[in-house]
Amino acid sequence: MRDETLEPLPKNWEMAYTDTGMIYFIDHNTKTTTWLDPRLCKK
């Protein structure tokens, strides 16, 4: 489920979907991926 109230992704981040429809996030700065939304992981 998407939460439209979240702010935009940080610079150089992208949201993508797996072949089965699961959301993951791509950090183009470090060339890594994560299941965790970077907008929710702020310190």
Rank of each mutant, 00 (worst) to 15 (best):
D37N: 07
T5R: 12
I26V: 11
P8E: 11
T18M: 05
F25R: 01
E4Q: 13
M22S: 15
K31I: 02
P38H: 01
L40R: 13
P8T: 08
K31H: 15
K43C: 12
R39M: 05
M1W: 07
L40P: 09
I26F: 03
R39E: 06
T30S: 12
L36P: 01
F25Q: 02
P10A: 04
I26M: 08
T18E: 04
W35P: 05
E7F: 05
E4I: 11
D3H: 15
P38T: 00
R2Q: 11
T30R: 08
T34N: 02
P8W: 05
L36S: 12
K42W: 09
M22T: 14
L40G: 13
P38E: 00
E14Q: 11
L40K: 14
L36Q: 13
I23D: 05
K31G: 10
K42M: 10
Y17C: 12
R39T: 07
T32D: 03
K11V: 10
I26A: 04
K11S: 11
I23W: 06
Y17G: 07
E4H: 08
L36H: 13
A16Q: 09
G21L: 02
C41N: 14
T20A: 13
H28W: 06
T20Q: 11
P38S: 00
N12V: 00
D3G: 12
I26E: 03
K31T: 07
T30W: 02
T20P: 03
L6A: 14
P38F: 00
F25C: 01
R2C: 12
I23Y: 02
A16E: 06
K42H: 11
T32C: 10
M22Y: 14
T20E: 14
C41A: 15
M15D: 04
D27V: 00
K42L: 11
M15E: 12
P38M: 01
L9S: 02
N29W: 07
Y24Q: 02
T30M: 07
D19Y: 08
G21V: 00
D3I: 07
E7T: 11
R39C: 05
R2W: 07
F25K: 01
M15K: 13
E7Q: 13
K43I: 09
M1A: 10
L40N: 15
L36I: 11
I23L: 14
M15Y: 08
P38C: 00
L9E: 03
H28R: 08
K31Q: 14
R39Q: 04
H28I: 05
H28L: 04
P10S: 03
K43R: 15
L9W: 03
E4R: 10
P8Y: 04
N12I: 00
W13G: 01
L9G: 01
T32G: 05
C41S: 15
Y17S: 13
M1I: 08
E4A: 10
D27P: 00
H28Q: 06
G21T: 01
L9D: 01
T20G: 13
D19W: 04
T30I: 04
E7P: 14
K11N: 09
Y24L: 02
K43N: 12
L6F: 09
E4P: 10
K31D: 07
P8G: 09
Y24R: 02
T34M: 02
P10R: 01
T33M: 05
P8R: 10
T33I: 03
Y17Q: 13
T34S: 10
D19E: 14
T5N: 15
T33L: 03
